[in-house]
Nucleic acid binder design. Sequence first.
DNA 1: CCCGAAATGAACTGAACCGTCTATAATTCC
DNA 2: GGAATTATAGACGGTTCAGTTCATTTCGGG
Lengths: 207, 207
Amino acid sequence: MPASAATVRRGRKFDQVLAGAREIFLRDGFEGASVDDIARAAGVSKATLYSYFPDKRLLFMEMARKQCKLQADESLMAIDMTQPPHIVLPLVGRTFLCFILSDMSHRVFRICVAEADRFPELGKQFYQSGPMLMHGEMTGYLREAMERGELAIEDFDLAADQFAELCKADLWSKLVFGIKSRFSEQEIARVVDGAVTTFLACYGRKP
Amino acid sequence: MPASAATVRRGRKFDQVLAGAREIFLRDGFEGASVDDIARAAGVSKATLYSYFPDKRLLFMEMARKQCKLQADESLMAIDMTQPPHIVLPLVGRTFLCFILSDMSHRVFRICVAEADRFPELGKQFYQSGPMLMHGEMTGYLREAMERGELAIEDFDLAADQFAELCKADLWSKLVFGIKSRFSEQEIARVVDGAVTTFLACYGRKP
DNA sequence: CCCGAAATGAACTGAACCGTCTATAATTCC
DNA sequence: GGAATTATAGACGGTTCAGTTCATTTCGGG
């Protein structure tokens, strides 16, 4: 009946263990994290931990999978498909940028990149729960706006990706490389406004 | 006379050790790499390795520093500042994109991201030897082109970053997350052409 | 050809850590 | 209230690994 994998047992303290795993893995990475630390952070004995998860790798994958899923749900913004681009794009851009600049998102990104070749599945999951979702939402909206004659786009996939990239501008690089970790409203507004302006200069149609 | 730090000794097999360190660190990451592996890959005894570098951390930093420096030199493309944007931008875009899609660049990026908080200096070095260089070259060119009346830009810093981001579009994400690792000329051309078109639609001035 | 410096390799230390196990305590269920 | 399941703490075995030591070999310069 339960859809859980045969390898991972569910139980009372299941979530508790995952919470501890998230804390330590996101802080120390896969190799850097010790199972003892995780058990301690989870407020659980190591024996209990191993009664749920057969080994460290599977615990890591389960944690990462859950985190990606959470990200997917959280970043699922409700675009009002009926509004014109000059209303929608700033909203989407700002939401997107704030999301990828958030501490949790950035930590998950870091660990996915770091462990992408130790856990090939992981990169794919992150991509699907992040960039791909945004891409899907955007192409959907762009098509509708185009049908209303508000945009003139040939390559929807490219346009959607371009908008996402424009929103990152260099704030995101600064975050990833630890140059800065906090950004003001002004900085965010500058980048998002710039992204919208540039995007619409290319694809916009005067009403 | 020698500018080397007091902590790192130079000598005959210095570069040999660094070469081995690069091979193993880039393959396995910092935690994943074993010093024995590095010594073996370098064709050097562990005692010799430790006679040059006091510990693993410093060896890693030295390797990363050198690699960033190499990247900086390699990515230093000679822009012909006198040519108009519709000539220069496709060239720069293509060079930039091929560079960040290259295997070495991508490996160095991965390790810098993964170890950015274990080695705070490292992130900064990578930023300066990559994004910041590109940014500097671009703003320089954009200014000159604007003086010639070929572009109309208010925020040079933002425009330069936007162009770089546009060139990544989604190819780079696919690479980082392991969705794809090789890209055809067509894919690259599509993204670069798109970047130039979008950029010029916003900032271009009809001659 | 020879001497001193540099390199070697192999063994060794001490510590971290994964995964297991056991004896004990708590909790649930009948 | 007692039996069965589940959790706990801690120790332990086996392994890996960073860094050290040392006796021996290699090598370059005089």
